[in-house]
Computed example of a mutant assay.
Amino acid sequence: MTVAPERLAKALAAVPPLDGSGADLPSTPETVSWGWMPGAGDGPVLEVAPGSVVSVDTVSHEGILGDQGRDPVRFFGGFGVPGEAVLDDAAAIASSPLSHDPSADGPHVVTGPIAVTGARPGDVVSITVLDLVPRVPYGIVSTRHGLGALPGEVIGDDPVFSAFCLVEDGVGSIALRADDPERRARFPLSPFLGFMGVAEAERVHSVAPARHGGNIDVRLLGVGATLHLPVQVPEALVGVGDPHFAQGDGEVALTAFEAPLRASLRLDLVPADEAAARFGALSGPLGETPDLWIPIGLDPDLDEAMRDAVRGSLDLLTRCYGMDRRQAYAYLSVATDYAVSQVVDGTKGVHGSIRKADFR
């Protein structure tokens, strides 16, 4: 399915690829872990002081995975993308001797770890997203290997299906039919990093989110948002990746519009005593925007993920606003939306949206 050359050329001209210059941390075979969140034993590829701003060039796994040929120039060329419009770092990672066993490793390219000087267990690292810039104007939504919300129902016996998406005139587009790439649906873009995490003692598989954060896929965590993560090991060892141009709550097909971003991130450190006063006993990821608190529930059972999100919401309201727990329960029922973050990662996600303005 090749997009008309003139259409692709217009998209490429509107969102020109960025080179590697200007990034504090490029994604290279030496600075990434493929399929795993680095653990305490992995040496940092960058060390920064608390409050530092880091520019990270993230790479999407779509187009470099083995079931897509592990050759992004050839893979994206099948959709009409010229070789010079394929990122050098994606090609370098795909062709490198980095081991990647899809039966054992996760798909995600995790850039890091980044050491935050002075971070200790009990502290909280706060990752604030200052800017997200598309590095190319195209990407992939994929379904594969009996995964997603409807395993086996949609793509049949095919091991993988890759739908090509474009950025056109500032919005995303996807073909209505695989055999007719010119008739397209259009949808708004809302870039975010699906993966932001801190290290645990051992390496953690990149797919399942947990207390360390990781692959939480909460689409509200775009520019201006902050993810608060309880530090598990000295220096925190932050890893990021899984860049998205857009995603619907649920992410039902398995992935969303996966495509590389240049991310500008500020890494703040909240000491343990201050963290206890602000967050209480924070046991997992907590999102925040200027307007919202975003409690995140995680569990292999979607019902339990929902309960986890509600409990986290109650804890937040009681410690931040001194709200009676029963009154908070009633407030959540009348004023807070809960959405399914994703149902495709083994560990399911539910996130709430608590308006800060309700308490001013």
Rank of each mutant, 00 (worst) to 15 (best):
M1G: 09
M1I: 08
M1K: 06
P5A: 01
E6P: 00
L8P: 00
P17A: 07
L18R: 15
L25I: 10
P26W: 04
T28F: 13
G35P: 05
D42Q: 13
L46H: 07
V54Y: 04
L65N: 06
G69C: 07
G69A: 09
P72Y: 02
P72L: 07
V73E: 14
G77W: 03
F79S: 05
F79H: 12
E84R: 14
E84C: 08
S95C: 07
S96F: 07
S99Q: 11
H108T: 07
A119Y: 00
A119K: 02
R120W: 05
I127W: 02
L130S: 01
Y138F: 15
G139E: 08
I140F: 09
I140L: 15
R144Q: 13
L150K: 08
G156M: 06
F161D: 05
V167D: 01
V167I: 06
G172M: 00
S173T: 01
R177V: 15
A185E: 11
S190P: 05
L193N: 01
G194R: 13
F195W: 14
A201G: 08
V207S: 06
A210G: 14
R211K: 11
H212T: 02
T226H: 05
L229Y: 10
L237D: 12
V240T: 04
D242W: 15
V252K: 10
F257Q: 11
A259F: 11
P260F: 12
L265Y: 09
V270I: 12
A276Q: 05
A276Y: 06
A277Q: 11
R278E: 06
F279T: 06
S283E: 12
P285T: 08
L286Y: 13
G287M: 03
P290M: 03
M306W: 13
R311S: 13
G312A: 14
G312K: 14
G312R: 15
G312E: 13
L316T: 04
R319L: 12
D324C: 09
S333N: 03
V334T: 11
A335M: 08
T336E: 08
Y338K: 05
S341C: 05
V350L: 14
